[in-house]
Design a protein around this nucleic acid. Structure first.
Ligand code: SF4
Ligand code: SF4
Lengths: 136, 136
DNA sequence: TATTAATTCTACCTTTCAGTAGTAATTAGT
DNA sequence: ACTAATTACTACTGAAAGGTAGAATTAATA
């Protein structure tokens, strides 16, 4: 019950970029600052470029930039890229597809926490968390 | 962001046993009813026996029984067996160990949902969910 | 144009999770 | 004692996640 490494790395990287949006960062710098393996980070960033959350500038003096306002990027947008969100149809007990017609045993206990997490991922944007906390 | 297959299977199996606690079930029956691969199920059950959540009766006419009252078995107890709970020290962004002295950027948004899930797993027992829902 | 620094692509390796196979150990019934 | 039915143990296979390597592509600058 936790986020995948990939999602964690993606959130941390985009959050860091949001707190320094004036500066254009490249993969080497991000990898060093955030302590994420360089090759893994570039793979993740390429995925984020493909879904238009990040703009890449290739070649010398290249790097990455957020393609939207940090206020426009919600955590959920990042998680869906890596299929790591909590989807509405997803059954917590893994019994096929969720339908409120036929619930699983945990349904009644799960709906409230589920909704709260979903809302949190939906409503929290990079602008909300950029610069917060002391861990990077 | 979901429970592992193993945890899901374990919860479903123990819940089913709790709803039929008068009857002693064996692995073959459980495997058929719950549609869980037989060999995988016995492996999981063996783990649950080792931590004293389940009692096994070996040999002919053998099977499994809950070793405690279903009211005494919380979901958290099951999840911890497979290291699938949400631990207090676990950082949602994976930045080392959680300490409220040095937070991660998501801290403020995460604490509330985190606590609600933890409470749900802690307070929900097999007795609460046994027989609920129409999926097994 | 050549060099250099950057991203991107393809392919691979490693570890963990999920699942399977075979056999040994245990026990009730005959 | 023997057999049949059952769990436990050991070891393996397959798939997915996590991570790595190297070459290809792009573009600024000298
Ligand atoms: S918990 Fe209830 S709502 Fe969530 S998936 Fe299972 S059945 Fe559907
Ligand atoms: S979110 Fe806050 S509390 Fe949870 S781990 Fe990160 S820092 Fe610690």
């Amino acid at each position: 019950m936790q986020l995948s490494n990939t999602s964690q790395y993606a959130i941390r990287t985009l959050t860091y970029m949001a707190t320094h949006k004036e500066v254009q960062m490249n993969a080497t710098q991000l990898s060093r600052v955030l302590d994420i393996p360089y090759k893994f980070l570039t793979k993740i960033m390429t995925d984020l470029v493909k879904v238009d959350l990040v703009e890449s500038i290739r070649g010398r003096e290249g790097g990455y930039l957020l393609k939207k306002q940090s206020r426009e990027i919600a955590l959920r947008d990042i998680l869906t890229v890596f299929h790591d969100g909590i989807e509405q149809e997803q059954c917590i007990l893994g019994i096929g597809v969720c339908s409120s017609l036929c619930k699983c045993a945990l349904h009644d206990q799960w709906v409230a926490p589920k909704q709260q997490i979903q809302q949190m991922f939906e409503q929290t944007t990079l602008a909300d968390i950029a610069g917060q906390g002391c861990k990077i």
